[in-house]
Amino acid sequence: MQLLEQILNGITLGSIYALIAIGYTMVYGVIGMINFAHGEVYMVGAFVGLIVMTILSSIGASLVPVYLIAMLLIAILVSSVLGWSIERVAYRPLRGKHRLIPLISAIGMSFFLQNFMQLSQGPRPFAVKQLIPGSFTVSESFSISYMQILIPVVTLVFMVLFTYFISKTKLGVACRATEQDRRMANLLGINTDTIISVIFVIGASLAAVAGVLVSLYYGTVRDTMGFIIGIKAFTAAVLGGIGSIPGAMLGGFVLGFTESFASAYIGGDYKDIVSFVLLLLILLVLPSGLLGKAEIEKV
């Protein structure tokens, strides 16, 4: 029975990683940089969700779906603006420069956001009220909490929406074209600058969804929550093959399972180590990840 529960934990955790990893993998696919500040967008999304929730409860809203939809939509709105601004301010002026330069700028951005939230709300965890308490009991030792059902479902909804967007809409096709060959797409009349902005906005929205879900699931929000989860989601993206969107989803779930089992059978203390070791191994042994295409470095 513990096994079943751990699988469930893995799915929940994996959904979160997958949502965040998509942002990493798309940005990397298009402009070849690690968007280090992505984890911070997730953190800001979680804070916005908490603020919206508190405002709603003070004006006396009581329906759970109202809460959920309002939190998600407003967090997505704010995070999209944030993602767009980050790209505009910190990355666009650096396009075409050496690889490490945008990375350092991204680290700066990440710390800027973290400290901005810390200064505006305080350096401590904030409790998030339980929105959907309780669980679905199967047997004495096996139960599924409602949140554990909600998270994969919401993730699935957004994944479907996103897949539809990227494969069927005109903008999505333009995104993929830009990802495959930026210069060629530009020649064909696609405004690649706009497309890059769109990619940042989409990545940020999915991160915000993850942020809201996590804050409801774990019950706290704080300024430092984005850093580690950001690195782990990056690991997931690399694991799936960076640049590949289905790869990011797969990578997220694989990492989620690995962590759940690691903390169950090795010890909770070492689960972070497991994901870092996994990252190192993939980069050394299988640099193109599970679903990625091998990259040839041109000289």
Binding site: Q2, E5, Q6, T12, L13, G219, E259, A264, G268
Partner: peptide, 11 residues
């Protein structure tokens, strides 16, 4: 903030 694996273990 994630104690779900620990809790499953305790259960």
């Amino acid at each position: 903030n994630d104690f779900s694996a620990l809790i499953s273990k305790i259960k």
